[in-house]
Amino acid sequence: MQKIKGIPVATAIVAAFAFAGAAQAQEVIKIGHVAPLTGPNAHIGKDNENGARMAVDELNAKGFMIGGKKVTFQLVPQDDASDPKQATTVAQALVDAKVKGVVGHMNSGTTIPASKIYFDAGIPQISPSATNPKYTQQGFNTAFRVVANDGQLGGVLGRYAVNELKGKNVAVIDDRTAYGQGVAEEFRKSALAAGATVVATQYTTDKATDFNAILTSVKSKKPDLVFFGGMDAVAGPMLRQMDQLGVAAKFMGGDGICTTELPNLAGPGLKDSEVVCAEAGGVTEAGKKALDDFKAAYKKKFNQDVVIYAPYTYDALMTLADAMQKAGSSDPKVYLPELAKIHHKGVTGEIAFDPKGDILNGTLTLYTYKGGKRSLLSVVK
């Protein structure tokens, strides 16, 4: 056997190929995603994860490049079960795993405590669905969101309740979570300012299933409209029991109830045009095709319809990737300044952030339900 300076030729060739392979090895960029994958909100959490997974698969399929080199994205999914304590545990796990960015969390009540951990580690975080204003009011330069906040959401719903639905006497119920309380309080302030009277204020939890006591009390006040701050898993059974108790009032809620799953959860309690909700995002006519194309691709990939926020998790991850590409680096310290000044054309519209990390020129989409399907009312800037 021939030798090169005492090394067998075959061995030298193998070593050379190994070295070349190592030299060409792609950088693996870990991106964390956090949402509830267990518990009553798991159907929304999985929808969010699916959106992030679509983005990762698309980036890898097209050979995404950063700094002139092809990279591979790896999604690191975590389950926070909509629990604030579990949220901080999984946030620390993602920091320890050395993720380069985080998409999540889903709920405001989990996003807010986790954001401190990401900030301390210098890891950019984009929430696709947390709407409580406190998230971006903490002074964390790593915190961003791609949806409107509760101030915008509750404000629009309060005015709509009075001016369009003619709600003069309103009842307000919330689930005591950061999200539920936040959106209910903003609705209450806006409705009062528009001329409504709040005739009842009640509280429940995000895991409750029996609402007979609070609904009986609400019924005695004869409201024109009931506003609920919480998620669809609670709103559905509440609507069923309102129907059973004969509570003759329209029902309104924020983005937490504004899902394609609400008709299944509410059953006969979901009356045509009697429920109005708002998604904390949406597109005008000019952006409709891109969003419709995304929803069609989502259905083809997962054999189910978008529940609500999958397009926003997709856009959040794509925005992180765009910032890395513009910076020529996946190092959070290097690409964070690019993220802060990004202008990314997403399937949910133009994504750019104000100095706090809130979405600039955020939109809201008002829906009702007819024939068991979500029906568009209007898109509001």
Rank of each mutant, 00 (worst) to 15 (best):
M318D: 04
D79Y: 01
D315N: 11
K356V: 10
A148P: 02
A233F: 09
S190D: 08
A321V: 12
G236V: 09
H105A: 04
A233L: 10
T142C: 05
G158H: 02
F211V: 00
S115W: 00
G371N: 11
S330R: 07
T260K: 05
V103S: 00
T319N: 01
V95W: 12
D47Y: 08
F119L: 09
K166E: 07
L270I: 08
G328I: 14
G104M: 00
Q138F: 08
D206Q: 12
M106K: 10
A52I: 07
T89W: 15
A121Y: 15
T284N: 07
Q202V: 11
M324P: 12
A196W: 08
I173C: 12
A286F: 10
K166N: 11
M324S: 11
Q202K: 14
V275D: 10
T319G: 03
A55F: 13
P332S: 07
D150K: 07
Q125S: 10
P263N: 12
K326Y: 09
V380S: 10
N107D: 06
A233Y: 07
T209C: 01
A61C: 02
A208C: 12
V247Q: 08
L157K: 03
N163D: 15
S82A: 13
K69L: 06
A196M: 08
R176Y: 15
A316S: 07
N41L: 08
K100C: 09
G155S: 10
D80H: 08
P84H: 01
A323Q: 03
L320Q: 00
D358N: 09
V14E: 07
T88A: 07
E274Y: 13
E279H: 13
I257W: 07
K3E: 15
T284Y: 04
G68F: 02
A296K: 13
H343L: 11
A121V: 14
I31H: 05
T313E: 06
G39W: 06
K30Y: 06
S108E: 02
I66E: 06
F211S: 05
R240F: 09
V218A: 13
A249H: 04
F227Y: 11
I4P: 02
A323G: 12
G349Q: 04
I308C: 08
F228K: 04
A130R: 00
L215R: 09
L376G: 07
A280S: 07
Y314R: 02
S129E: 06
Y309I: 06
V162R: 03
D232T: 10
A61F: 08
